[in-house]
């Protein structure tokens, strides 16, 4: 009940916002690098979730800087979409795993004709339980 303004309504200190934006960009970039360099399908989707994280952080930082709650509302929607996407993606991954008995994304290269880049160095293993 004091007369001081709550923290949300005081102008944000610029380094905080800058660092937050920077971290958001870095998280997004890391998520992209991970998506492009991992070959395990589930981990690839995990990295896309990392990109969502970056986006959400940017939203929150902007909301803080502009003192507008719309950014935080948007983060809620990000969460919604991430959840929906995770559910469906993981379901699909399970189905794909059941078909080829491996989580490697290289197993699904039927559309290609040319050189296939780095191959799985070891041959696919013995039959696995699903």
């Amino acid at each position: 009940m004091t007369g001081s303004l709550p923290a949300a309504f005081t102008p944000a200190s610029p380094p905080e916002i800058s660092i937050a934006m920077l971290v958001s960009a870095v998280l997004f970039g890391l998520g992209l690098v991970g998506f492009l360099s991992r070959r395990n399908m589930i981990i690839m989707f995990l990295c896309t979730e990392l990109m969502f994280q970056g986006a959400a952080l940017a939203m929150v930082a902007a909301a803080r800087d502009l003192m507008d709650t719309s950014g935080q509302v948007f983060v809620i929607f990000i969460l919604t979409v991430a959840a929906a996407e995770a559910a469906l993606a993981l379901g699909l991954v399970v189905l794909l795993y059941r078909c080829r008995e491996t989580l490697s994304a290289d197993a699904w290269s039927d559309l290609g004709e040319g050189p296939r880049g780095v191959h799985d160095p070891e041959p696919p293993d013995q039959p696995e339980q699903g």
Binding site: L32, F35, L36, S37, R39, M44, A105, D106, W108, S109, D110, L111, G112, E113, G114, P115, R116, G117
Partner: peptide
């Protein structure tokens, strides 16, 4: 540009990125 269309998922992702 042919290696870009090797059918591997990440190849297309690199192109998109």
């Amino acid at each position: 540009f042919r290696p870009l269309y090797s059918g591997v998922l990440q190849g297309y992702a690199v192109t998109m990125a």
